[in-house]
């Protein structure tokens, strides 16, 4: 196991004026190069937790370390070099008149040279499979393209960690899959990826590790196939395991899964089981 790139120690957080802790004694380590899905009902503390990773929120108690540095002393603008945070709705961030300016915004704030910015623009457009004119107005792009532009403009700051908050909102399955495949490519190149989502089908296709939040705490944490096999516990956290896991449980409860389950893989397992029997 490589060294933890994000480390959370006894993190508690209370929003001002609220009596209940939004996060209650959270401990967590994420290693470099992981692909993690963070799931849980609304209000379970997912967003509060990831906002601590890039310093938008500071711990009420406990500590958060990113690349070994305590986030308490760092501003979000400084953390942006290490952590890219893509918000749920691209329309909350898109402001520029051209695609070029939109992508250049973050790198400019970080003081990148013009040369470096230009090469970044080219790179991230390729990474996000955006075949658009640099002078095009972002508002004229489709919703799916705007989402990818939002990711591109975060990637241009060269963060090694990428956080994506709910990539499915306002998009259909095809667009979500397209985006997630691109994120997968980034992960293959060594980026650490953290995705929060309500779409369990997406989780079972991409994540290798699943963290389940419940009432401000980490409720389950483990390999995707292991977490999704604990369907009763998941239900108490308001999560329904993907149907393939439920089907596997009633048909082949004795089989060790080894890796995440997809319909195709379940069919293969069922097929070999039956042939053996």
């Amino acid at each position: 196991m490589s060294e933890a790139i994000i480390k959370v120690e006894n993190l508690c957080f209370q929003y001002p004026g609220r009596s209940v802790n939004a996060l209650q004694d959270v401990n967590l380590e994420i290693a470099e190069g992981e692909f993690v899905a963070l799931i849980g009902q609304n209000g379970s503390g997912k967003t509060t937790l990831i906002k601590h990773f890039n310093g938008l929120l500071k711990p009420s108690k406990g500590k958060v370390f990113v690349k070994g540095k305590d986030t308490t002393s760092l501003r979000t603008a400084e953390l942006a070099r290490s952590i890219g945070y893509v918000f749920q709705n691209p329309d909350h961030q898109i402001f520029a008149e051209t695609v070029r300016d939109e992508i250049a915004f973050g790198p400019k704030n970080l003081g990148f040279s013009e040369e470096r910015i230009n090469s970044e623009i080219e790179r991230v457009l390729k990474e996000m499979d955006l075949d658009v004119d640099l002078d095009e107005m972002p508002f004229q792009l489709s919703r799916g393209q705007r989402q990818r532009l939002a990711v591109a403009s975060v990637l241009a700051m060269e963060p090694s960690i990428l956080i994506i908050d709910e990539p499915t909102t306002g998009q259909d399955w095809k667009e979500s899959i397209l985006l997630m495949n691109l994120v997968q490519n980034l992960n293959d190149k060594g980026h650490t990826c953290i995705v929060t989502t309500h779409n369990m089908n997406l989780v079972s296709l991409f994540a290798r590790r699943v963290i389940v939040m419940k009432s401000g705490n980490i409720f389950l944490d483990g390999a995707t196939q292991d977490v999704f096999r604990r369907e009763e516990e998941l239900l108490t956290a308001g999560i329904k395991a993907p149907d393939v896991y439920l089907l596997a449980r009633s048909l082949i409860p004795q089989v060790q899964l080894g890796k995440p389950l997809t319909p195709q893989r379940l069919a293969e397992l069922l097929n070999t089981q039956s042939n053996l029997g």
């Binding site: 938008l56 603008a77 890219g84 918000f87 709705n89 909350h92 961030q93 973050g106 970080l110 975060v154």
Partner: peptide, 19 residues
């Protein structure tokens, strides 16, 4: 609420609003 989300998203893109 929208305003807070938007400023957060700009902070995340290294806009130093707080100084």
């Amino acid at each position: 609420g929208d305003y807070l989300t938007i400023t957060d998203s700009f902070r995340s893109r290294a806009l130093d609003i707080d100084s």
